[in-house]
Design a binder for these strands. Structure first.
Lengths: 158, 158
DNA sequence: TGCTTGCCTGGAGTGCACTCCAAGGTCTTA
DNA sequence: TAAGACCTTGGAGTGCACTCCAGGCAAGCA
């Protein structure tokens, strides 16, 4: 069932906005900058620098430019991609599947159908997950109200 | 590589119904039976027998009766508890926290306030998670419609 | 020139939640 | 009575997603 468990660590993956379309052009940020160090990107995304390097190593980051000294220089497009990956991560999709998706993106436009199928399958998972969580919420509410009723001190009459 | 491994094992944790209240009495199943072997419970819950033993070992199963030969005999109350644990698991709550909750239950009624606080915190997590997933859904839908538009063959005009 | 800070790499380590194993005891059916 | 399915235990192993480490390079500043 793939119980997710994202949680912890101030995640700000979504900060790069809703765009996150690997086929779109890298639109510049307000300050016009389009070069970010790994620690800047770590700050933007909430991912650690380690994790960003690891993402690149396993093929989840398509390709990151380098400075003349070999240091990574992330672009706005990279940030958009990371934001999208963050969303996929929230769905509970395994990293291996995200890598598969990234490979399809790299292969070009003829993989549109496959990509779409993956996303539609993910969409179903998300819908199911939301339903599960809402069901769980009902049970939690029931239990919480039981506890609330059982506590003699009505410090908060719900 | 690419180990696609989504959603295995038919989970039927919720089969015990919405009850799942550790303070309630063990209401009998329609067949009047109240003794289940570990493999039966594994079948009911979708958890493996290994996992059920492990749950007991770490203190997540309060106490399971034994037959005269030492084999586990799960009761309806155990099933209810497992159903509730399954719900907590769906929320992404770590097993360690669930063990803490189980310990509070074992300690008796004077831990009601703490238990309630835990559940309320979990409730908040669930609400946040649902919001995240709904946000993700929006993005998935946007992307899927992009792909749908890009595919020349309109075999399914959405 | 030396110090600090930030970055690089491959590989090893971590934490979680199981999952399996070996070796043996028990139950059920023929 | 015997075969085979099912159960027991503690401890080791697995897979995932990071997370850290050692050793080293490069830039900026006093």
């Amino acid at each position: 069932m793939t119980v997710v468990q994202v949680a912890k660590s101030s995640r700000r993956v979504g900060s790069a906005g809703v765009a996150a379309c690997e086929a779109e052009d890298g639109h510049l940020r307000p300050d016009g900058q389009d070069q970010y160090t790994i620690s800047e990107v770590a700050g933007f995304t909430g991912l650690s620098a380690h994790t960003l390097r690891w993402y690149e190593r396993i093929g989840l980051m398509p390709h990151v430019d380098r400075s003349h000294t070999g240091q990574r220089r992330f672009s706005n497009r990279d940030l958009d991609w990371l934001a999208f990956v963050g969303k996929l991560r929230l769905t509970g999709m395994p990293v291996a599947d995200m890598v598969t998706y990234a490979e399809l993106v790299r292969e070009g436009d003829h993989t549109f159908a496959q990509r779409r199928a993956m996303l539609e399958s993910t969409r179903c998972d998300v819908l199911q997950r939301i339903a599960e969580l809402q069901d769980t919420l009902t049970i939690l509410d029931h239990k919480i109200s039981t506890y609330a009723g059982a506590q003699c001190a009505p410090e908060r009459t719900a």
